[in-house]
Nucleic acid binder design. Structure first.
Length: 221
DNA sequence: ATCCCGAGGG
DNA sequence: CCCTCTGGAT
């Protein structure tokens, strides 16, 4: 995809959704960090279902430490990878208390030192909570970037660096959410809904066979 | 490369 | 049944 196409690509996504936001539910920075940590290989709907029960009971590092691991696991049992996530969240809360006064740190190094927090999660917190122009490459962004030709790469880091160099600066702060939402609802993993895709004119991907739904839409419209 | 690991959709 | 979901640690 050339630079002019990339410009049109994001202008089109912005026109349909001027102020995109995460669909994870949170009311403060700690809740955001916890929700993103829990969202690894899980849907935001599933994470919200659990945090809607957990956060009213415990939404600070101290409260979660006081809760204890077995009860934290009970709240997270409906989320995939819940044992690992419960242990990581518990240790992260202990480290936040020991090293950061119970607050969420603002640097990549400090964030990535927390158990269960890698580059992608750190990038989300830096972007959403602290307004930094980062690009968190998750499963959606990795797929959309490669499939469309926006920023092809073999690893998430390679895609991230390519996106940072290709996305026009004015679109960078919101690009993360536009690409996530586009991947979730249109450029889906199993069956990309190309027949209703607003950015198809600038996309490199061409489906080999037109999906049944596409044919139905063509004959009825 | 492998493990973790439940819910929802097709 | 199979695949996917805002990955991270070993």
């Amino acid at each position: 995809m050339n630079q002019a196409s990339i410009q049109a690509f994001f202008a089109t996504l912005k026109a349909a959704n001027p102020h995109p936001v995460t669909e994870l539910q949170y009311t403060n920075v700690f809740e955001l960090l916890a929700a993103v940590l829990l969202s690894a290989q899980a849907t935001d709907v599933g994470v919200n279902k659990a945090t809607r029960r957990l956060f009213p009971v415990a939404n600070t590092p101290a409260a979660i430490v006081a809760l204890g691991l077995p009860r934290l696991e009970d709240y997270l049992r409906t989320i995939g990878l819940y044992r690992t996530k419960a242990k990581n969240l518990m240790q992260t809360c202990q480290l936040l208390l020991e090293r950061h006064g119970g607050r969420v740190p603002r640097t990549r190094e400090a964030l990535e030192a927390l158990p269960g927090v890698g580059r992608k999660t750190a990038n989300v917190v830096l972007n959403v909570a602290f307004g930094e122009p980062t690009m968190a490459v998750d499963t959606h962004i990795f797929r959309v970037s490669n499939r469309t030709g926006l920023a092809p790469g073999k690893t998430p880091l390679a895609v991230e660096l390519k996106l940072l160099s290709r996305v026009p600066p004015e679109y960078l702060p919101d690009a993360h959410h536009w690409l996530i939402l586009h991947g979730r609802y249109v450029c889906q993993a199993r069956l990309p809904r190309c027949w209703e895709c607003s950015v198809a004119p600038w996309c490199d991907y061409r489906p080999k066979s037109i999906a049944p739904q596409a044919r139905a839409n063509q004959t009825t419209s």
